[in-house]
Amino acid sequence: MHGQRCIEENSVVILYVDFKTLRVLRVTKTVDTKDGKKVPNIYQTIYGPLNVSEVIGKPYGARIELKKGFVYLMFPSPELWTLALPHRTQILYSTDISLIIANLELKPGKIVCEAGTGSGSLSCSILRTIMPCGKLHTFDFHDQRVECAVEEFTSLGYGEFVVAKHRDVCQDGFGVELTGKVDAVFLDLPHPWLALTAATKVLKNCGRIASFSPCVEQVQKMCVELRSNGYEQLKTIECLVRESVVKTITLTTPSLCTAKNRTEEPLPKRMKTDGSDPRDGGEATFFSMPVTSCAGHTGFLTFATCMKNRS
């Protein structure tokens, strides 16, 4: 994946139109119309049409000039994928994902189980971290979601490192072949405690478990069950990200002595947007403040260690 710097036919590209508009683009020379004809693949953007076959051979990060502006062709990193992917369910975002990866102690070579797969937002980050010798076993009880996820994992280049199965782990477990072989389990289920016996079965000694729940009632029930199943080092956290906007402003000290002289000069019709009077002079400084609206809650993350000599 690190060697791949140029866009090839059938690559997946994230089209950066502006900071709010990221689109998944599949690089094909032609597309099929409704009546089965092959026509050149032209992708419409607000800056004009993009002839997709022209991006083949371009490096990732390349800037493409269009009629009314430009777009960037970005590498589908898990972070960009999370921002652009087609939503089939609610998804996990990068802050929670980072904490899950770190608290599950993931690194190259780890064997991980995930339920459910959902839209595959977390899966891609897990895969990037455990590649090339680890493996992700991901399960979802929704057949179509699994099919879509498999197709996406393959086109993103993760195919050989992931096994995606259609299964309800609460009823049928993670599979006997994984017994005692898994380093970490992640659960994003409405009733995560129903999958706990199955998780304990597949986890290695000192293996880690993580559970994501939006509601505190689920967390309480899960913690009780974790303790009674021999899990230790329980930790429940909530993490929110706060973005800052940065501006350059001019701070001025009005000088009373010069106020009289100043009136001789006509006042400009429009003041600068930051309200300062350019005639005061003053130095430009950087100013940052948190954005006025941000996510207030995503969910609670509960982590624990599976102690095999207690369960």
Partner: peptide, 21 residues
Amino acid sequence: AVLVKLTENWLREYQVLPDRT
């Protein structure tokens, strides 16, 4: 660079016990 962001993170840990969360 694109998607230039300046962020901080707010983290809160919870005590989770029956009736005492």
